[in-house]
Amino acid sequence: MSQPALTITAPGQAAGRRRRLLEIAGAAAIAATYIFLVLTQPADIANGPASFSALVALGGFLLGAVLLIVAVLPVLPTSTVVLIPVALVLNVVLGQLMGGTGLPFYIDAIGTVLIAVLAGPAAGAATGALSSIVWSFFNPTVLPFAAGAALIGFLAGMAARGGLFRRFYFAPIAGFVTGILAGVVSAPIAAFVFGGTSGLGTGAIVSAFRAMGDTLLAAITKQALISDPMDKAIVFAIAALLAYALPRRTTFQFPFVRRYRVLAGKAPAAPDA
């Protein structure tokens, strides 16, 4: 089975440098926004309530996500672009299926992590950010979390490149670390844009920290550190299970999987074509 579409295209030198600059600018926008928000968080949110911080958070994080998409999307091979809608649908459908099992987790990134494992960190970041943008057509509250979703996809891709998906027990550990970082980055959005978390379970945890006198950002960050790492560890484990449940003929057709030996086991014998 020949797959000419799956070869990595080599862009021109200048265009490549411009894209790299855009990627760096996107990541810098997200990081700078986070640092600015933490340093300047209003001591008294009741006065001039969080509006300034909300605008900064929305502007900075969305700018970063859009820059990442503009930098990454045009250079992705078609085989990866067609996977992005699949990933988004999987995020939603598998999240709903998991909800049906009665487990108390909000599992909404399986597709993003799976694409990151199969197609690499750039594709993962673009998938995460695009997922948030497209899903905001049905639920606008997802949109501000685009930067966090991009970070999850990027880190999952880096973990796959580093070989953490070759051993099954490393995948949840990588997910745990990803959850810590993504939770911390997303906390200012929950705090300043929405003023809290949706859902009574997480709301109760935030309330407990607030009752101890924490600022809103500190309380939501601590809540994220409790729920997100566990959630992402489960997501990474499910994505690893899916990646190994797929036939090797399917997974090994991705150049990223072959080049970095992402999955354990030998590549299937090359067909004569």
Binding site: Q3, A5, L6, P77, T78, S79, V81, V82, L83, V86, V89, L90, V93, L94, L97, L114, L118, L242, A245, L246, P247, T250, Q253
Partner: peptide
């Protein structure tokens, strides 16, 4: 889940070639 994911990824591959 496994049949769903497999079918979707397989479809995506043939869609990529057509596109």
């Amino acid at each position: 889940m496994v049949p769903l994911v497999l079918a979707l990824i397989d479809d995506a591959g043939s869609r990529a070639q057509a596109l």
